[in-house]
Design a protein around this nucleic acid. Structure first.
Length: 161
DNA sequence: GCCAACGTTGGC
DNA sequence: GCCAACGTTGGC
């Protein structure tokens, strides 16, 4: 049975000092594997729910200021995060085994860079974004679902046509 | 650099 | 199963 499912919307955090939206854009084919997620809830979203062509808001955390800076698409669904098996990798995790991976990743592809990045402070001012996970005090989830309204609201402001 | 919030670990 | 200690995230 063919299953068609609706596009889902996500937000993914990255530290621009480590990997920025410009780094994504400059990657081969504008895409990269989103390795290093070591949180079970974030993993579950990637492994169990992300579908090809889902849309992603890219957020720069630990930045000045921290901003939503652009968008991407899921271009490859979940597969084992091989960096967990590499003792030299900062995200090495001996719990993860080749025959029973603990951690997963997806590939994302650059879609757009905002002409107007939207800072956390700006987002907090927007009534339509009330309840958004990113805006919750103490929120640390690096991969999180957003609603279509949240995505569209941010996309419209960040990348005016 | 500070520190609040959070997730994980491990003793019991 | 409880919970204190610890390490990490991430805003400021």
């Amino acid at each position: 049975m063919a299953v068609t499912t609706k596009t889902k919307y996500w937000l993914m955090k990255t530290e621009p000092d480590v990997f920025s939206i410009d780094d994504l854009k400059a990657s081969k084919d504008g895409s990269t594997h989103w390795d290093g997620v070591r949180n079970y809830l974030a993993r579950n979203f990637m492994r169990d729910q992300m579908q090809w062509n889902d849309r992603v808001l890219v957020y720069h955390s630990n930045a000045n200021p921290s901003c939503v800076v652009g968008t991407a698409r899921i271009c490859k669904t979940a597969y084992p995060d091989f960096t967990a098996w590499d003792p030299q990798d900062p995200h090495f995790d001996p719990k993860s085994k080749a025959d029973h991976p603990t951690w997963y990743m997806v590939d994302i592809q650059f879609e757009s860079k905002f002409s107007m990045p939207l800072s956390l402070a700006q987002l907090k001012e927007m009534p339509k974004l009330e309840g958004m996970e990113l805006l919750r005090k103490g929120s640390r989830l690096s991969v999180q679902p957003v609603t279509k309204l949240q995505f569209d609201t941010i996309f419209k402001l960040g990348k005016p046509s």
